[in-house]
Design a protein around this nucleic acid. Structure first.
Lengths: 228, 228
DNA sequence: AAATTTGAACTGACTGGTCAGTGCAAAAAC
DNA sequence: GTTTTTGCACTGACCAGTCAGTTCAAATTT
C-alpha cells in the first residue's frame, strides 16, 4: 500500500484540487468529467455503507467506468475519498461565507448573519445529503488515514461561524461571556442533526418550515405561551 | 451461515440476554463477564475504525479472548454490534429520564429539566465517548443490517426530550408554535456535537464549563453585551 | 474425600471467499 | 499521435465464520 502509484508511467495522479486542464479556456476536460462521476458515485455509496464496506468495483460500476479508470484518476481508494472530502467541504464553506457576507452587505445584524448561515447550511445538506452523512460518520473517528484532512476541512467551515460570533461579541451584539468555539460547535450540531433527522424521518417537509423552527430556537423565541 | 451451530451438540449459543447460570444464586456468570469484555473491546475499536474496518480477530485480541469465544457468545459480528447498541442507548435513555424526573420532583421548571438533561447527556458522553462516536457514525447511514435497531434505539432517547418539550408547551411554559420533534433533534444535535468537539479538541476543559456554555445558549442568554 | 463424569465455556488452526491494487494490449476520444 | 479509457485476468493479503478438540469447576459416584 505504501509505494502508491509511480509505476504505471503515464498518469499524473497528483492530489491537486482542480483545474490544470490543457490550455483550454473553459477548463472542464474529459478527465474532469470522469472524476466528477467518480465523486458522485463514491459519495453515495460511502454514505450508505461506509468507506471500508464500499468496494472500488462498486464505485466504478456505479460511475459507469472501468476499474482501471479509477486508478488512472486517483492513486488509491483513500486518496479518492480525501479529495472528495476536500471538494465537498470547500463548497460548504464557500456557501456559508457567502451567506454571512451578503447579510453584512445588506446591513443585517449578526443574528441575521447566523440565521442566513443556518439557512445556507440547510440548503447545502438538502442538496448534498450523502456528503453530509459521510462527513458526520467520519468526523469524530480517530486513527484514520484522512484524520488530518478532516481537521483542516472542519476548521474551514466552523471558522466561518466563529468569525461571525466573534464579530458579534466585539460589536456588542452578543454577550462577551459566550464561549465562541463551543457555541459555534453547538450551532453547527444543531443544524446538522436537525437537518439529518429531517432528511431521514420527515423528508416531505419544506426547507422553509425547518428553517423557521431552527430560527425560533436560535433566537430564543421558545419560552412563553401564545406566540412566544 | 444460516444453520448456526446445532452440530456441536453441547453449546446453546442462543441469543438470550442473561442469567441461566448453573444454579448459583448471585447470577453473574463467567459468560456475562466475557460478554462485557467483548463489549468494551468492540466499542473502542469500532468507534475508532468503523464497523467494517474492525475485525473480529482484533476484538477478540483486545478482549483477551480467543476468536471462537466471540462466536460462542454472539451469533455474528453484526449481532455483537446490535446488542452493544441496545446496551449503550439503554443506559443513555435511563440517564436522561432520571434527570428529567428528578427535576420534576424538585419542582423545577421545564427549562430546568432540559438543562438537567443537557448535563446528563454531557456526563454520558464524557463517560462513554467511544460509544457516542460510534452512535453518531452509524445513525444516519442507510442500507445497513442494524438500521431498524438504530431507529428504535434513537427514538428511545429522543422521546425523552420530546416529552419534556411537549409538557412544557401544554403547561404554557414554551410557545405552542415550537416544532417539538425538530426542536428535540436540534437540542440533541447541539449537545452531541458540542460534546464531541469538546472531547476531540479541548479535552482538558471541565464538564461544568461546557455545561455553562450550553446553558447560556439554551436559555437564549446570548444576545446583549456585558453580562448578556 | 478421592475418583470419575459432565458439559458449558473456550481455543486456535483452518477454509472459502472477497477485495485492493496491478499489468497490459487494444480501443476510443481528442 | 497523445491522452484517456476499457476489459479482464491475476495476485496476495485479509477476514468472517467453522469445528474438532481442550479446559476446568461443579456434580455425582464410590
Amino acid at each position: 500500500m505504501s509505494a502508491a502509484v509511480t509505476s504505471r508511467g503515464t498518469a499524473p495522479v497528483t492530489i491537486r484540487a482542480m483545474e490544470s486542464s490543457s490550455t483550454a479556456p473553459g477548463g472542464s476536460t474529459r478527465r474532469e468529467a470522469t472524476r466528477q462521476k467518480l465523486y458522485e458515485a463514491a459519495v453515495t455509496l460511502i454514505a450508505e455503507q461506509g468507506f471500508s464496506a464500499t468496494t472500488v468495483d462498486e464505485i466504478a460500476e456505479r460511475a459507469g467506468v472501468a476499474k482501471g479508470t479509477v486508478y488512472y484518476n486517483f492513486a488509491s481508494k483513500s486518496v479518492l475519498f480525501e479529495e472528495l472530502l476536500r471538494h465537498g467541504v470547500g463548497l460548504l464553506a464557500a456557501s456559508l461565507r457567502e451567506a454571512a457576507e451578503k447579510t453584512a452587505r445588506d446591513g443585517g445584524s449578526k443574528v441575521d448573519a447566523l440565521d442566513a448561515m443556518v439557512r445556507a447550511g440547510l440548503v447545502f445538506i438538502d442538496r448534498y445529503p450523502a456528503f453530509t452523512q459521510l462527513y458526520v460518520a467520519e468526523m469524530w473517528r480517530t486513527n484514520r488515514a484522512w484524520q488530518s484532512t478532516l481537521m483542516v476541512v472542519r476548521q474551514q467551515a466552523v471558522a466561518v461561524v466563529e468569525d461571525v460570533l466573534r464579530e458579534g461579541v466585539e460589536g456588542g451584539e452578543f454577550s462577551d461571556e459566550i464561549d465562541v468555539p463551543l457555541t459555534a460547535s453547538a450551532l453547527v450540531g444543531m443544524v446538522l442533526v436537525a437537518a439529518l433527522d429531517w432528511q431521514s424521518f420527515q423528508p416531505e417537509r419544506s426547507l422553509d418550515d425547518v428553517h423557521a423552527a431552527l430560527s425560533r430556537l436560535l433566537q430564543g423565541r421558545v419560552s412563553g405561551p401564545g406566540r412566544g
